[in-house]
Design a protein around this nucleic acid. Sequence first.
DNA 1: TTGAAAGCGCTAACAG
DNA 2: CTGTTAGCGCTTTCAA
Lengths: 356, 356
Amino acid sequence: MQNALHAAACDFERNGRRPTITDVAREAGVSPSTVSHVFSRRRPTSAQTDARVHAVAEALGYRPSLTAQTLVTGRSRLIALVVPDLLNPFYASVAGGVEEAAAEAGLSVIIGNTDMRAEKEDHLVGVLEARGVDGIVFITDVRARQPALERLARRGTPIVTLDEEVEGGFHLVAVDNEGGSRQVAEHLIARGHRRLGVVAGPAGLPTTRARLRGFRAGLGAGLLPSSRIVYADDRLEGGRRAARGLLGGRDRPTALFATNDLMALGAVAAARELRLGVPQEVSIVGFDDIPFAALADPPLTTVAQPAAALGRVAATMLLDAMRTPDEPAMRVQLPVELVVRASTAPVPADRSTEDS
Amino acid sequence: MQNALHAAACDFERNGRRPTITDVAREAGVSPSTVSHVFSRRRPTSAQTDARVHAVAEALGYRPSLTAQTLVTGRSRLIALVVPDLLNPFYASVAGGVEEAAAEAGLSVIIGNTDMRAEKEDHLVGVLEARGVDGIVFITDVRARQPALERLARRGTPIVTLDEEVEGGFHLVAVDNEGGSRQVAEHLIARGHRRLGVVAGPAGLPTTRARLRGFRAGLGAGLLPSSRIVYADDRLEGGRRAARGLLGGRDRPTALFATNDLMALGAVAAARELRLGVPQEVSIVGFDDIPFAALADPPLTTVAQPAAALGRVAATMLLDAMRTPDEPAMRVQLPVELVVRASTAPVPADRSTEDS
DNA sequence: TTGAAAGCGCTAACAG
DNA sequence: CTGTTAGCGCTTTCAA
């Protein structure tokens, strides 16, 4: 028998065919269902059988096909993560958290990077449906994809959104965008800043809106004319350009709030180009607390959000929802924290009363 | 018939079952194989049939199950990307490139983040095999996973490695790590630096070794005692700590080469903590040219590699290999380029002859 | 231009 | 404790 087994093993080596459960069953002298049970441990098997099956499987290099398992069980052990921009360290951290929690639970993660392009998002949702993913963490424009996503949700695929509250049975993991931004405003106001500017992300993003709202709320009335809000693509270059506009003209703001760190770092670069000292001549605040925020020069004052934890929580919510389908949508809020670093300072004495 | 169709559609709405090809066939009054052919276009169908099938599919919200297709065709249209650290913008860019090229070709990407942990890598390889991925871009310790990966390769799963030449039929996409590092050495030597230090990544990484080799080659003999090479975890904190060691002692180097940008930025932070001017008192060079390199203060001199292109090329090689299985392993090398920015300067006059 | 039938690799009753 | 059997949803001959 050893010889037969060896021969079979060599055969698989040679012709490159993956062994199946039937191959293992035959070589081990048991039925396929027994092999199945040896691997799944869903019903007891004798120690002997166990050992023989494992030995044969090992020799042939057998692994149960997840594809076949998926077809019969209806569970793919596969979740998807859809992000707008993997190059943003914040989303990369979220992705890391999702992957980690998923891997611990034995799930694989399909990643989709949309660059916020509508066709890509549409296409992606279709593919994920066709693949039968067990759940989706969707961190882009949920509202625009709502019909398709709702159909998925109705058919039992849990969906977690980030920071975007929408009807339709989606789970939500969020941070207090408004509260964090309000703290930014209060921080600046307390340091005497009265002429503020905002480098805002895309106007369509729920986070952009929430952060603007919070910032406004913390300022009090009349301090933020819309001419001092510039919307930008929410990456480095976008922030740089927007800040150039805000800082280049007359009556430049004494402080800038960028709705994410990438844009804030872009704004710092813009200030440097314009030979404006940060924070001596202009204070700059970001949002996210990406790893570079602390290392930038000057270190960036920003609102820290627990990116990896957001990802982990999102994945965990998916796991919960997969276990208990008919539960209502969950919502979790994680804390943010204003981290004051050197990019903000009191407004210079000679400019403190120039403007309103 | 409209009514029957509507009723069926409502039924799927209600009970959440996904319609199958059989459902569509029944409602459209054709056979399942016809529906299959309407979608795959692998044999002609009459315009009438076509229209009716599509209408029914639309009404029921039908999408062919990729799982079932995978089972029968043996192709999953799924590739995997295994990276050591998604939080490193370099790998995030590579991932972006892979995802983009894959999506264009209609493939999905499973992502695995290993943190360089052996068990995770082992586990991952097993899962990818079980999932029947059509190809793998493996950017971590290939050598350590070689037996398992080779078995996969023998069974027809193409595998692309990055910067790591190994036997066993793996495809390779690489950059000229040695050449780039040699240029760094020459750049520093030309500016009078003679006391150099290296903040090196993990000694086991092929890139670390290649970059050290190239740097040494460019220096000439005797300029880099091993006491001036500090190995570190290849992230920000690792670079910071390593640089603190190198710069904190007596006879500190006038220039530091870090084998990636993350560590180089950590080194800049360390220099700042020690109140050493960069580049006045110490020049610092990195490798990768991540987006922050240009924005750091001072902007970082570094060796640029085309990260997104590496990813795109890797994915494209996979696609090629999937089409033409029995072709020999491909190797592609992409160019690097030394980008001189403000973090390097000539060695200060008062220190230029202190050492060797 | 279409349909019938077999089967991809596995699980899950049901029987023993 | 183990085997038999009937599918999961699809593609693909083969036959018409």
